[in-house]
Nucleic acid binder design. Structure first.
Lengths: 227, 227
DNA sequence: ATCTCTCTCAATCAAATGATTGATTGATAC
DNA sequence: GTATCAATCAATCATTTGATTGAGAGAGAT
């Protein structure tokens, strides 16, 4: 499509600076949304964090509304990049779901602001149609991935036969978002939560349905430490 | 303690007007928090919704910070009233948990703003120590109720023996809050979600762990309608 | 009647905030 | 050289917003 061997084609020449600025602005805005919330976001603060003048910021991102949309798009880009280049078609649904948990752990623990902003924007989507247009498709896509995995997992015998994929997807998404909204940042807390989610959806071992189990039968359940 | 037969004691005479105003202010503030978020809350809007002058509002609630704390206290009062006068000590843990789901359904469907404000304030508690002081005890109390019910439910044989009460409480709370944050308002969606939660924690029927179940064995799982 | 105390409001202030204006810089093209 | 254009900034504007002031209104007590 594009002519090869030409580094600066006449069309769209040297737009990189603008894109870089917009990326930096989006990053600063994400951080500030985590710190202050969407309604607490200030264009001045964003410009200051980027290290540019407010007017310059308005040059690249005309309005505050556009700023929030830019943040939403940046989340889209992130999730898109996340789902690309992961050849796992050869795995079973149960194994792919396990990898979903691994992926999510990476986001939740290493890029916690991503999920917090995502959660914030989902909240704002209820009040702002334009935010909804940018964020709800992401949410729906995530849900669909989970529903499909769960449905397939039931078929292949990994999960309970009485599992309701739609309700269960709601449960999984809410739990994951809820985990990020807590201020754990604790890896072990996540592992424990995922282990419980796994037990909630998988076919139970016979030991779990015996009326009088031994303590050693309580596989995976750690000590009951309070939050 | 108080002298009987005296309707208007000298101490605390006719404070009702102020309390009424504060209650009305709290109600308006809750509604506006749902509509605009905590950071989007405006003292003018609150006063206007109550039908009083801004200065009058500041007379009853001196600062915006006090306003948010008032909202937090109003939630406290609501939940306190919710947990009082419910003699259910004679019931099993499983039955009491069932009633928790019933209680929550009532709140989620009939007073949706309560849980939305609760969720908002939990979010803000991460950034604001004073909000945290008012809200986190509520959250902790709710969690403890669930942990206790789950622990007892495992002991009495209602729930899976490999259930981790702490992780499971997190899952339940997140799912319930997540349900309220969606704009369902749909009773059947809630029933379906609760049914899935019940299956996730209860001991599974033998039919659910058979490798090749019949369709009729999928008890409780409704049609897979997408959101 | 008048005093007191609670409650209310119009008017106003100072700070915060989203956005604009007009000028400047620096790189590229001609 | 100079014309052009993207990018930048200092200064400024118009609103919004949290909060205050000072002046009443009304009810009950003396």
């Amino acid at each position: 499509m594009a002519p090869p061997m030409i580094e600066t084609p006449t069309i769209a020449p040297r737009r990189a600076p603008t894109d870089d600025r917009r990326a930096a602005i989006a990053k600063a805005a994400r951080e500030l949304i985590v710190e202050k919330g969407v309604e607490g976001l200030r264009t001045r603060d964003v410009a200051e964090r980027v290290g540019i003048n407010v007017a310059t910021m308005h040059y690249h991102v005309p309005t505050k509304e556009a700023l929030v949309e830019l943040v939403a798009e940046s989340l889209q880009d992130f999730f898109r990049g996340q789902s690309i280049a992961r050849p796992r078609a050869h795995l079973s649904a149960g194994e792919r779901m396990d990898l979903e948990f691994v992926d999510f752990r990476e986001i939740a623990l290493e890029k916690p602001e991503i999920m917090l902003v995502f959660s914030e924007l989902i909240e704002r989507a209820r009040r702002d149609e334009r935010i909804g247009a940018a964020i709800l498709p992401l949410k729906k896509k995530w849900r669909q991935i989970l529903v499909d995995l769960l449905t397939e997992g039931v078929s292949e015998g990994s999960y309970r036969t009485n599992l309701d994929p739609d309700a269960c997807a709601t449960m999984l998404m809410s739990t994951m978002i809820g985990f990020c909204r807590n201020r754990h940042k604790d890896s072990s807390a996540y592992e424990r939560l995922v282990a419980e989610l796994q037990r909630a959806i998988r076919i139970q071992p016979v030991s779990a349905i015996l009326p009088n189990p031994t303590d050693t039968a309580r596989q995976g359940a750690g000590p009951n430490t309070k939050e």
